[in-house]
Simulated assay, not measured.
Amino acid sequence: MIKPLRKAVLPVAGLGTRFLPATKAMAKEMLPVVDRPLIQYSIDEARAAGIEQFCLITGRGKTALVEYFDRAFELEATLKERNKPEAMQALKESSMLPGTMLSVRQQEPLGLGHAIWCARAFIGDDPFAILLPDDIVLSKTPCLKQLADAYQQTGGSVVAVTEVPHEQTNRYGILKVGQDDGTMVEITGLVEKPDPKDAPSNLSIIGRYVLTADVITHLSRLERGAGNEVQLTDAMAKMIGTGPFHGLRFEGRRFDCGDKIGFLEAQIAFALERPDLGPAVREFLKTYVDRL
């Protein structure tokens, strides 16, 4: 019997140095795309996939991420008194049910694998999702929902993958592939940030994963990999052959909001999708295009 997917881990302990000085006193994951912070896009996507329990892997100075999803009674009372139902609805969408979110402190910056290992008590023996808030995906069906459906179909671990320029394989976790039907790819190997001449393909993992709890066994060894960090990719590679493991070419467009250009592009793309903003955004974009 396939265990239901109900848990998600969100690693949010990074310093956000590429966005200084904005992130000097503000968590990178609180930077807004249009009118919602990055962290909320991930939470909303997870909820749409049936996730009910959330674990934030935080670091020093990241308490605002937990507080953001708490109820703001004084603000709610003020909005009610001023008869602002739309604002009240927006506020409601940023709150969590009691007992559904916890945070764990990653005390040392030892890599993504170490961050996931910090959530081992939360994960237990259950399958779980990982969402990296730096990545947001614009799609008809939420990206994690696509992965959750693939997990139900295969009964094993599934990661979201996309093609990257071959010369950039040294920036990503890269797949070695077996059977490939154009959508679902059998993973026969994983390499973290390979040199382009050694890369087994140009299929890269993005920040969406559904993994079985077996990965914790490998992470618990705390073995160092690329960058002298505990790499999640290395632990996943050791799971290959012990159960189904696939990459999913997801429907949608991914934006790397850990990069300034990707972040700016996401602002425009998501604004254009909004009925209340799209027409005005198209008009002002024409002004800038004419200046090129």
Rank of each mutant, 00 (worst) to 15 (best):
F73S: 13
D135P: 02
R224F: 11
D256M: 11
A64K: 07
T183L: 12
T78N: 11
G225M: 02
V66G: 11
G227M: 03
S204G: 12
N83D: 15
L97G: 10
A27D: 01
L132N: 08
G99H: 10
K260H: 14
D214R: 06
Q179A: 15
Y209M: 08
F245Y: 08
E29V: 03
I205N: 04
S139W: 13
G50H: 00
T212H: 06
G156E: 00
P142F: 02
Y209Q: 00
F19D: 04
N83L: 10
G241Q: 08
R171V: 00
I187T: 01
A46P: 00
K260Q: 14
A237V: 01
K62M: 09
C143R: 10
L31A: 06
A119C: 06
S157E: 00
E45N: 15
K286M: 12
F250A: 01
A266K: 03
Q107R: 14
S103V: 06
S157Q: 01
G262I: 03
P165K: 00
W117F: 14
L75C: 09
G59A: 15
D180R: 02
G99E: 12
D195G: 08
N83G: 09
R282T: 13
D198L: 12
A266Y: 01
I116Y: 07
D70R: 14
R171C: 10
K7G: 05
S94I: 04
D276N: 12
R82S: 15
G50L: 00
R274E: 03
A150D: 02
I261N: 13
A25V: 10
H246V: 09
P244L: 08
T154I: 05
A119S: 06
R36T: 10
L138I: 13
G111W: 01
G99D: 12
I174R: 03
A25R: 15
L112I: 13
L20W: 06
F122Q: 04
D180K: 04
K260G: 08
Y151P: 02
A49M: 00
C118T: 07
F69K: 05
V137H: 03
A27C: 08
Q231V: 11
V177L: 13
G258F: 06
T212M: 14
I240K: 05
A129R: 03
P142Q: 07
G262A: 05
V9S: 01
M239Q: 08
L10P: 06
L219F: 03
A27Y: 00
G16Y: 12
F250E: 01
V177Y: 11
D135C: 13
L110M: 13
V210N: 01
A22L: 13
K260P: 03
G111M: 00
